[in-house]
């Protein structure tokens, strides 16, 4: 009877398992790290392309900076056409509404915007006075 392969070998065999076989291979892990970081950059560029444009506006003035700004703006335009930038902005607005309580508060156009919940009205009034 043929001897069964070691359990660890069978566990690590198969597609998607090749990394687990060499967990201490520094070069492979560094390459994996670079792939991970570049993917993260790509993700941010997809959903936060507006931020990319803002960052390029802070670059020191010059021809190369203008070229970078132009590339960033073009990219942002593409992402808006694709809808990813708008999706990101919609999430930001939803979180903002949750944070400010607008999501739960009944809409009352006549309400005074100056009143903050939790303020001591008498003290606030004294301060204002």
């Amino acid at each position: 009877m043929a001897a069964a392969p070691p359990r660890s070998a069978t566990r690590n065999a198969g597609p998607g398992r090749h990394r687990a076989r060499r967990p201490h291979d520094t070069a492979a892990n560094v390459r994996a790290g670079l792939v991970i970081f570049l993917t993260a950059f790509a993700g941010l560029a997809l959903f936060r392309s507006g931020d990319l444009v803002s960052v390029t506006y802070d670059l020191p003035p010059g021809e190369s900076s203008e070229a970078v700004v132009s590339v960033a703006e073009t990219w942002d335009g593409w992402m808006r056409a694709l809808g990813t930038a708008e999706l990101g902005e919609a999430i930001v607005e939803t979180v903002g509404a949750f944070a400010s309580g607008e999501m739960f508060a009944p809409t009352d156009p006549g309400e005074d915007d100056g009143d903050r919940p939790g303020t001591n009205e008498e003290s606030a009034g004294e301060d204002a006075g």
């Binding site: 990394r19 991970i36 993260a40 993700g43 941010l44 990101g88 999430i91 930001v92 979180v95 944070a99």
Partner: peptide, 25 residues
């Protein structure tokens, strides 16, 4: 996570950073 394929880690890390950026003030 160390047992995940690199592509899965990359997507999870990218998703984490994007979500943080979107929900942070």
């Amino acid at each position: 996570i160390r047992r995940w394929p690199t592509a899965a880690i990359a997507l999870a890390f990218a998703a984490g950073l994007v979500i943080i950026q979107l929900i942070a003030p």
